[in-house]
């Protein structure tokens, strides 16, 4: 199990991580959710011993990420943010190379990657640079898994990947967890958060909340309304000007308005917006999504 305690890290004047603490349980699929620049990649690099924290500690199954970095590097599988395999080597050669780096053979751990690798196996003679985005990520995942790591650290594995491949990728992650590999995934996509066992919201270097996706949604005390009107472009700003508004933002084809008060009803909002000369207003109370929860938490 992984214990991150009071980790801080600054780059010059920029504080990338500010007192970050959380735990990841054995065999968990843990999601680190946050926008670009939230500090996800820095946290990953500290977690896998590639960077040292300014203060605080990281322990992986009792190993200190700074002191025992050599031992830590044997038990982690890391997939950095950008595709970083060798584009001039074939699929097969990349896999074999990473197996050799960790002193294992492809055969002995093939069962672990079989489900992921089977998608790209037909192209094993193809240079990695000529794969599609989704296939590249599957290859990178196979390479990160080939030595049977205890911790799989995936930094934005699905950024720039099409929707179908993203879905397949997450199905694979589910299967990997079944095989007993603890996984930490960073992602800016809120819809992926729902697929994790537990998630941590991170923004501006701080952890905002940690829980199961279900609890996060259920525990939200704020009410969310989906609002549509004729003037969609000015609508978010108008909603924000309402006295009870916490946040208002475009969400698909509507504007989501989060309010603190449970006394606020759809009618009240409609009346206020009418006074602000909006037309064709529809206001509909909805159940919050993970993304709503994130935005509300970030606002608070």
């Amino acid at each position: 199990m992984i214990r991150i305690a009071n980790v801080c890290k600054s780059f010059g004047a920029v504080q990338a991580l500010n007192d970050v603490s959380f735990e990841v349980k054995e065999n968990e699929l843990f999601g680190l959710i946050g926008p670009d620049g939230a500090g996800k990649s820095t946290l990953f690099r500290i977690l896998i011993s590639l960077m040292t924290p300014d203060s605080g500690t990281v322990a992986l199954w009792g190993l200190d990420a700074v002191r025992d970095y050599k031992a830590v590097r044997k038990i982690i599988g890391y997939m950095p943010g950008k595709f970083s395999l060798y584009e001039d080597l074939t699929v097969e050669e990349n896999l074999q190379f990473f197996a050799s780096v960790f002193g294992v053979t492809v055969e002995e751990n093939y069962h672990l990657i079989e489900e992921v690798y089977s998608h790209i196996a037909p192209f094993r003679k193809r240079p990695a640079g000529k794969l599609s985005g989704g296939m590249k990520q599957k290859l990178a995942l196979s390479c990160a898994l080939i030595h049977k790591p205890r911790l799989l650290a995936l930094d934005e594995p699905t950024t720039g990947v099409d929707a179908v491949s993203r879905k397949e990728f997450w199905e694979n992650l589910g299967a990997i967890r079944q095989a007993g590999v603890t996984t930490i995934v960073a992602t800016p996509y809120m819809d992926e958060a729902a697929l994790c066992d537990r998630i941590a919201f991170i923004n501006k270097g701080r952890i905002l909340s940690i829980d199961t996706p279900q609890n996060i949604v259920e525990r939200t005390t704020q009410r969310i309304f989906a609002i549509r009107a004729a003037n969609m472009r000015t609508l978010p700003a108008l909603c924000r000007s309402l006295p009870e508004a916490i946040a208002a933002y475009s969400f698909g084809d509507s504007v989501h308005l989060a309010v603190n008060s449970h006394h606020t009803e759809a009618d009240g909002i409609r009346q206020q917006l009418t006074r602000l000369s909006c037309e064709k207003i529809t206001v509909e109370p909805i159940a919050p999504t993970i993304e709503d929860c994130f935005i509300i938490t970030a606002k608070n």
């Binding site: 896998i48 011993s49 590639l50 050599k70 590097r73 044997k74 982690i76 890391y78 950095p80 943010g81 950008k82 595709f83 970083s84 395999l85 060798y86 990473f98 780096v101 960790f102 002193g103 390479c143």
Partner: peptide
């Protein structure tokens, strides 16, 4: 530049 050095560094090499 490619980022693969990051993986090599994070390996037991």
């Amino acid at each position: 530049e490619l980022g693969s050095m990051e993986i090599l560094l994070a390996s037991p090499l």
